[in-house]
């Protein structure tokens, strides 16, 4: 997994609440059996005026000029500013895959849906929860000044504005540790192999019916 320590990048504001994973990456792209190739289809229904198909070349598709990511001033954005309950809906990990491949490294919102939040950490994409009034202020600043950037520091757990104001955010120690070091979860868990085997043996004795087939 890609590590995340500190990132400074252009901010794009997506001013909608409850952005669901069906919007982040529509279902037709979920038919892929690969982990890559989703970036061009991020927010497909909002980003393009036609209906996208898997494998389609996006370079000639008509862009929706009203969609914020298509505004020239947000080209190259790597920090996404969002509203509450971002990533609600399905468990598709294709959503963080698409965001990451598009170029986003961090998403700042007042709240995220649980599964999306969890999936993001596994893919080097940092979801940052800040209070709603702070996010409001970031939206105002971002919309007011072209080229607005933020610095997200996972080590220090801070978001730093261009005016020097810092906002601290909370993050689980375990998730932070894995993301800072780009650690492979499975490898870490397998270090506890003996504990798992011992648990499994006790579990089997206590609840033998859980280990039966039809």
């Amino acid at each position: 997994m890609k590590a995340f320590t500190k990132h400074t990048g252009l901010v794009a504001p997506l001013d909608r609440a409850n952005v669901d994973t069906d919007q982040i990456i529509p279902k037709q792209f979920l038919k892929s059996i690969r982990r890559t190739g989703f970036g061009p289809y991020l927010f497909d229904e909002w980003r393009y005026l036609d209906v996208g198909q898997p494998g389609q070349d996006c370079s000639t598709r008509p862009l929706n000029p009203d969609f914020v990511l298509n505004f020239p001033r947000y080209r190259g954005a790597s920090v996404l500013l969002a509203r509450e309950n971002f990533g609600c809906g399905s468990s598709r990990e294709h959503a963080p895959w698409a965001l990451e491949e598009y170029g986003f490294r961090a998403i700042i919102a007042p709240g995220f849906a649980d599964i999306f939040y969890n999936n993001s950490f596994k893919n080097g994409l940092l979801p940052v929860v800040l209070p709603a009034d702070v996010v409001d202020e970031l939206f105002r600043q971002c919309e007011a000044s072209e080229g607005y950037t933020l610095t997200v520091d996972l080590e220090a757990q801070t978001v730093t504005r261009p005016d020097g104001v810092q906002h601290r955010f909370e993050v689980d120690a375990f998730r932070r540790h894995c993301l800072l070091n780009g650690l492979d979860d499975i490898g870490l868990t397998l270090q506890e192999k003996d504990a798992i085997l011992a648990f499994e043996a006790r579990h089997r004795t206590a609840y033998p019916w859980l280990f039966q087939g039809p």
Binding site: R35, S90, S91, R92, E93, P96, I115, N118, N119, K122, N123, F174, D185, I186, L188, T189, L190, I196, E200
Partner: peptide, 17 residues
């Protein structure tokens, strides 16, 4: 529900973090 990374994690370890 879990994401695909966790599907792999459960397959490989029978556990989740």
């Amino acid at each position: 529900g879990i994401g695909t990374s966790e599907v792999e994690h459960v397959l490989a370890t029978q556990c989740l973090v």
